[in-house]
Each structure stands twice: as structure tokens, then as C-alpha cells.
């Protein structure tokens, strides 16, 4: 874990309200594991927005370039999108536990809703290097204008099923609709699920995985001030622990095995 001021290499819009930013740091890149995140200080000279913002590490390229993928959802991300090449940002990371990568003979099933694709791209890169089987992915957006990264994912040897809620591209519906159908046929192959996306999507996926007795890792979001385990803002109710009532997304996560979370509280 370290703090480094880096210069932005590029920051460009790639879809509706969706931006891709890259910067170089050999140290951060060498430490980073899929599923980990960074706390980014947008501008040291302003006190509003005040806090750092957490971003999943989206991709590592050329061993020293890190990318984040983000959607403009408020003041902080709007400010982030205004930053230009060579602007400095302070980055703290890599933080959190990251995904546990399955062995070469397991069948990974990646499920991403919207910006949930951010960390799943990184795990897809890693799985692509070691997996013998094709990686299956369900990728969902609300509408075609939001769809990003489809070509890049296909380049990673991924069998991709795309959904949009309004049916403007791919299959009409939700990624969770595809899951039921998929498991009817593939359950006996015991796929290992990696999921990231809206909380309600994760709840559905996790509960399905639990009842189907499948290994499932979900990457959660949490409101956090520090990302370092200090503020204890990012609490999530524990589902399986007697001595630990809450887990902290920044430290115990952001990746949790599905049975660790009390999904009834979500």
C-alpha cells in the first residue's frame, strides 16, 4: 500500500457518461491484484469535494499503466472527468483483498452490471492467462448508449452475452435473467461466479449461487472516507460470523464470498 502522485496519461469519454482514465505507476501496477481498488484524491487544492473517491482497478497494461473506468454520478466524478492529460492526482493503493483466482480447470462465469465491468475486466485479463476453458460473461447495461468495452472483452477470448434493459442492443432483460437459464444447463459443471454491479443484482446472483451450492465472489461498493480500515464507514452486515457483526468493504473486501454477507439486510 502506498501513496503516489501520478500524472494523467489520458482521460476520455467512451460511452454515455462513462470515462476511461489511465496513468502510469510501476509500483502500483506491480502490487495490484484483480478486484483491488484505489482511493483517488481529485484535487488537493479544493475542499469540496472533500474526500478521496474509491475506484476499482480496471486494467493493467504494459506492466506499468493502470486504468480506471468510471461513470459521472456526482460532483466528484464530474470533477474527475474535467481533468486533462498531465494533470496530477494523488493515488492511494492498492487497497482491499481482490479476487481469489480459480484454478486452470474451473469454469469461470463473470457477471457484470453497468460499471461492475470495471474490476471484472481485470479479472478477465488474469483468468485469460491461466484458464483452459472459455470464460463465460454476462454483461448488462440499461441501454445501448451505455454499452462499452465489448470488442476489448471479445479480444480476451470471452464468450460474451450482452443484455440491455430496454432491448436496444443484445438480449432484452437483465443479466440475472440469463443466470437462471445458464444454470439449468451448466450447473453440473460447477461454474465459479465472479460478480460486480448494482447491489440488488449482486443479491440475486449471490442468493442463486448459495441455493445452487456454487462458489461465488461478489465485489461490493461501500461509502468510505479513507479506504484504509480507519473510518469504519463502509460497514456491511456479516452473514456468517458470530464474533464479527459487520465486515468493512475496504479491508475485509471489497470481494466477499457470497455466504459471508447477510443479504437480508441489503
Amino acid at each position: 500500500m502506498l501513496e503516489e502522485t501520478v500524472l494523467i496519461e489520458f482521460n476520455r469519454q467512451i460511452g454515455k457518461d462513462t470515462w476511461l482514465m489511465g496513468f502510469r505507476s510501476a509500483d502500483l501496477a506491480s502490487l495490484a491484484k484483480p478486484g483491488q481498488f484505489l482511493m483517488i484524491h481529485l484535487d488537493r487544492n479544493t475542499k469540496d469535494p472533500l474526500l478521496r473517491r474509491p475506484f476499482s482497478i480496471h486494467r493493467i497494461q504494459d506492466r506499468n499503466q493502470l486504468m480506471i473506468l468510471y461513470k459521472i454520478v456526482g460532483k466528484g466524478t464530474l470533477l474527475l472527468s474535467s481533468l486533462k492529460e498531465d494533470d496530477p492526482i494523488s493515488v492511494v493503493g492498492p487497497l482491499g483483498n481482490g479476487f481469489t483466482i480459480s484454478g486452470p480447470h474451473e469454469r469461470p462465469l463473470l457477471i457484470a452490471g453497468g460499471m461492475g465491468i470495471a474490476p471484472l475486466f481485470f479479472i478477465a485479463q488474469a483468468l485469460n492467462k491461466i484458464q483452459k476453458h472459455t470464460i463465460k460473461m454476462f454483461l448488462g447495461f440499461s441501454t445501448s448508449q451505455e454499452v462499452v468495452l465489448v470488442d476489448q472483452l471479445k479480444g480476451l477470448n470471452i464468450d460474451l452475452s450482452l443484455t440491455t434493459e430496454d432491448g436496444s442492443l443484445g438480449i432484452k432483460g437483465l443479466v440475472t435473467d440469463l443466470l437462471d437459464e445458464y444454470l439449468r444447463q451448466e450447473l453440473n459443471k460447477k461454474p465459479v461466479i465472479y460478480a460486480c454491479g448494482p447491489t440488488l443484482m449482486l443479491k440475486k446472483v449471490a442468493q442463486k449461487a448459495i441455493t445452487s451450492n456454487l462458489r461465488c465472489y461478489v465485489s461490493l461498493e461501500g461509502c468510505m472516507a479513507c479506504g484504509l480500515g480507519i473510518c469504519q464507514g463502509c460497514a456491511v452486515k456479516a452473514g456468517n460470523s458470530k464474533d464479527k457483526p459487520y465486515y468493512y468493504v475496504c479491508q475485509d473486501g471489497p470481494v466477499f464470498s457470497s455466504e459471508m454477507i447477510d443479504w437480508r439486510a441489503i
Binding site: D48, L51, C223, C231, G233, C234, V236, K237, P245, A265
Partner: peptide, 14 residues
């Protein structure tokens, strides 16, 4: 501790 959400940012404040 309390159930989440436990923190929210306000202008220049936490």
C-alpha cells in the same frame, strides 16, 4: 456500530 450507510459527504464536511 450502526447499520450502513454510516457516512455521507456534505460540502467541505463529513
Amino acid at each position: 456500530g450502526n447499520p450502513p450507510p454510516r457516512i455521507v459527504e456534505t460540502p467541505c464536511g463529513l
